[in-house]
């Protein structure tokens, strides 16, 4: 199936230089699912629908991310994973359904208050980070400048404060010393770590990851997943569209399986990877070339 090859490097995560400390004990598998009720709901998508022309990409998808959740969205190509993710920060505007961010209803249609809608979207985006498959670093700016842009022009930090903050997050992803490099001078794995640092520098309430390792050479996947494990261990709220099944199984607190624009199954990874999974998910998992646990 579509995910061949991309999962191969999952086991390489523990090899190579380790840029960040990993606290495996605290990863999601050990979280208490019962605590979800006391935690703040960050993103609440309800019954989202999205059409691309005559094709219904999202057919009533609901998803809730509470503080500290690590949600892995899996599914084959065209199942609507990326569209769902992009609806959460309104890079795509849903055609129906509702989206709430920390309890606030997000407007999809601006008329007659287009200005207010745009302001709300900008505020939502400034508090929900996004990491793209193709990194999307600005190649005319240095690594440090990439990290400073948001803090300076959205959060209103001075150049100096933004630079200090940028350096701190660059160190966090293990890339101190690359401040003045241009993205084109970095490896794909390094670029994606910079992109993660760029999202972190906004101190967001949640980070959306859109297939963060799919564009990487297999040997570079590990360094990015390591950073993401670290973030999960620290309690960062993350929604991750991924083909890395081993990573999803180990790190995610909840697995959401999308099929044909609907949630076909969701639950704790250990349940879904075990015998209790619906047949469709088992087919998907076995087709993905990933060994079952």
């Amino acid at each position: 199936m579509v995910m061949d090859g991309c999962c191969l490097a999952a086991d390489d995560e523990t090899t190579g230089p380790d840029p960040v400390r990993i606290d495996r004990k605290a990863t999601a598998g050990d979280r208490d699912p019962g605590a979800a009720a006391d935690r703040e709901t960050i993103i609440e998508a309800d019954n989202l629908e999205k059409w691309f022309g005559a094709h219904k990409v999202l057919d009533g998808v609901s998803l809730e991310a509470n503080r500290g959740d690590v949600i892995a969205i899996v599914g084959s190509s065209g199942s609507g994973k990326s569209t769902l993710l992009r609806c959460m920060n309104l890079l795509e505007t849903p055609d129906a359904g509702s989206l709430r961010f920390r309890g606030e209803q997000i407007a999809f249609d601006g008329a007659p208050h287009e200005r207010a809608r745009r302001k709300q979207v900008e505020r939502l985006r400034s508090q929900v980070g996004m990491v793209f498959q193709a990194f999307n670093l600005w190649d005319h700016r240095t690594v440090l400048e990439n990290l400073m842009e948001g803090p300076r022009f959205v959060l209103g930090l001075s150049r100096r404060e933004a630079a200090d903050r940028a350096r701190a997050y660059l160190a966090k992803v293990g890339l101190s010393g690359k401040e003045n490099a241009y993205p084109a001078h970095l490896s794909g794995g390094q670029q994606q770590r910079v992109a993660i640092a760029r999202a972190l520098a906004m101190a967001p309430h949640a980070i959306l990851f859109d297939e963060p390792t799919s564009a990487l050479d297999p040997e570079l996947v590990g360094e990015v997943l390591r950073v993401m494990r670290q973030l999960a261990a620290e309690g960062t709220t993350m929604v991750i569209v991924t083909h890395e099944m081993a990573f999803a199984r180990d790190v995610a607190s909840r697995l959401v399986f999308l099929q044909g624009g609907r949630v076909a199954a969701q639950g704790a990874p250990r349940d879904l990877f075990g015998g209790g999974a619906p047949q469709r998910l088992r087919d998907f998992l076995s087709g993905g070339g990933e060994r079952a646990p």
Binding site: E122, R125, Q127, G129, A134, N136, E149, V154, A199, M202
Partner: peptide, 13 residues
């Protein structure tokens, strides 16, 4: 993607 990355940070138009 270059513009989307900027939008995703909440930068103004």
């Amino acid at each position: 993607g270059q513009v989307e990355a900027a939008m995703a940070l909440g930068l103004k138009r």
